[in-house]
Design a protein around this nucleic acid. Structure first.
Lengths: 355, 355
DNA sequence: GGCTGTTATGTTTACGTAAACATTTGATGG
DNA sequence: CCATCAAATGTTTACGTAAACATAACAGCC
């Protein structure tokens, strides 16, 4: 088959070239000439306007096909004043949540006829973020969705073009921005209650890094839920979301006899935690119950399978796109936070306390 | 602080509006008027041309700042004939490899002044792929990087604009396209040899799904390495990359007394496999050695920590961008496959066979 | 037959930028 | 003092599209 050939094939001999060495593409004018109509008629056909004779339409379509006509999106964007593109700024795609959200955003955007441009920020410093935003200024986007901590954002947003709408994930900046996020507090409460309901006296928490809003929220909700139930507060142990950090924290927790239930702020840390507990001879769930957050695909295959809080990233992404498009269309400032509910997934890593 | 305010603030009263309800942005002409120069001089300043008096430059920059001027990228793209954007087509971002490659592509592209537009393909069918490509036609991209099986690609490429260059990851289509990929065969050989060197008679393989080229390559290399060493071939067990499928396959393999060494085609399946072995009372690595592929961040925290083949996704992404930019600039067809070497990471899941 | 309205199509123009070309200014040298 | 040249800046134009406006053709009606 020659189809692959077609793409990579050298340009045909005699083909006219521009300075960039690019193969010229047919424009509406070319199509119009071949079809014997005006370019405006070509435009009408191209955009599916009514009011073009079937006869004319067929001729135009034939000419388009013959010349391999593709609308020039730069010209379109220039004329229409919009790019039909949403920019997504995010930190490393190393965390499941960001990736899944991104994916959902891309899918939702596509179904709305929007493309998604990715703006990775290598290092989460204000300077880097500022850099991403200044690249963005020149970029062809109508709106921006930010998946990151807003405290890194503030100084940078100064430079954003005024008509670009922003929606933020993973933030508490509902006062200033439109924010969509998982219901961190609700998910945490469900997790902690689950452990208390099983009969544990109190629940320990293996939290995320200090800079993270999500980590902060989960830790706050954990403390609050314990207080609400009149249980003893326990010291917070911090990791950095990685399994490795969960392992280190786990070694620490394994040494505490009285610790029978741990709520980890994500599944990866729960994984490392369980390895540490195992190494130190503390069985899960017989001696210690462990619960995670995220419900990554692998969590059902951990040893033991992990009880965890399922996040609906697809919904978060969908809502982000919906919100940002709504903001664009109304051009009105709309603030406030939309929370996406979570669901507790009960597996084998939680059980009543020993004795 | 008011910075956040600035972005979401309602448009100032009296601000002129266009039909779309968009806030108009300043153009070069506006800047030129304010600075008292021609718009061409503004263009020169904007593009950093020499031959503008320091005095003039300062005036123009001041006017730009006052008006909040941002170059219009649509107009730029139209004029220059290029978008400085690379499209990336990929299946679900559920697999580590795709995500990490995507991230590296985005980072490399950014450092070359290119943006990355994401084109998710929800379901890996020819129709869906064709859909992505036809969206692409209208999209503002100069080149495309495809992270998917090329056999899904062939029919679709028909419709690609002729000047758009393509680079493919995860494929054997080096004859037709420029392909960049991990050295699947080399990595597999290292993994299988490692197990044989430890003293195992032969090595079983938990392979990936049939459609996957990477899975195919790993299975082929596994067979080849066994044959090369004069060992007995064993039946291939297939999974679908997920930990869950690894678990199911693991139940099967656990029943085979003679199976002492398994090479899993990725880390997730190795995870599920180890859980199944554990459940059936076969210890890793004492009874069965397990080796994975990918070296996902969590693999060092599995129970036991997983010996695996490390893939350098960052390098793959970098090479993709490099290749596609080279192709664009030369406008010449360049085919062939570039392989990125792997590295065996030895952890606790592999040991000499029992007895 | 001429008037009105509708439908199909053509013509003009503007979107914002930057290349190509044109003009102005000022300095240098014979 | 004017010719020559270079540097700085201005003017024109084209990129491809689509809105706005203009025209042509034709049907229906009194």
């Amino acid at each position: 088959m020659d189809t692959a050939e077609g793409v990579a094939a050298p340009p045909e001999a005699g083909v006219r070239r521009r300075r960039g060495g690019r193969v010229p593409t047919a424009s509406m004018a070319d199509v119009a000439r071949l079809a014997g109509v005006s370019s405006q008629t070509v435009s009408r056909v191209s955009n599916g306007y009514a009011g073009v004779t079937e006869e004319t339409r067929r001729q135009v379509l034939a000419a388009m096909k013959e010349l391999g006509y593709r609308p020039n999106s730069a010209a379109r964007a220039l004329k229409r004043g919009e790019f039909r593109t949403i920019g997504v700024i995010t930190f490393s795609l190393a965390t499941t949540g960001n990736v899944r959200t991104l994916e959902a955003i891309a899918t939702s955007a596509a179904s709305e006829g929007y493309a998604v441009t990715l703006l990775p920020v290598a290092v989460p410093t204000q300077d880097e973020v500022r850099g991403a935003f200044s690249r963005l200024e020149e970029l062809a986007v109508d709106a921006v969705i930010v998946i990151m901590e807003v405290h890194l954002l503030d100084a940078a947003t100064l430079k954003l073009p005024p008509h670009v709408q922003v929606v933020v994930v993973d933030s508490d900046a509902g006062d200033h921005y439109t924010v969509v996020d998982t219901d961190q507090a609700g998910g945490t409460r469900a997790a902690v209650r689950h452990l208390l309901d099983l009969g544990h006296d109190t629940v320990w928490h293996l939290g995320g890094p200090e800079g993270s809003f999500a980590a902060q929220r989960r830790a706050d909700a954990w403390r609050h839920t314990l207080a609400e139930a009149g249980r003893n507060p326990t010291p917070l142990v911090r990791g950095d979301w990685s399994a490795e950090s969960g392992y280190r924290a786990g070694l620490e927790l394994a040494a505490r006899e009285q610790c029978t239930a741990v709520f980890a702020a994500n599944d990866q840390m729960a994984l490392g935690l369980m390895r540490a507990l195992h190494e130190r001879g503390r069985r899960v769930p017989e001696d210690v119950s462990v619960i995670g957050f995220d419900d990554i695909p692998e969590s059902g295959s951990f040893l033991p399978p992990l009880t965890t809080v399922h996040q609906d990233f697809a919904e978060v992404g969908r809502l982000c796109v919906e919100a940002v498009l709504r903001k664009m269309r109304q051009d009105g400032p709309e603030r406030g936070t939309t929370l996406v509910p979570t669901r507790l997934v009960t597996r084998a890593s939680t059980a009543p306390p020993p004795r």
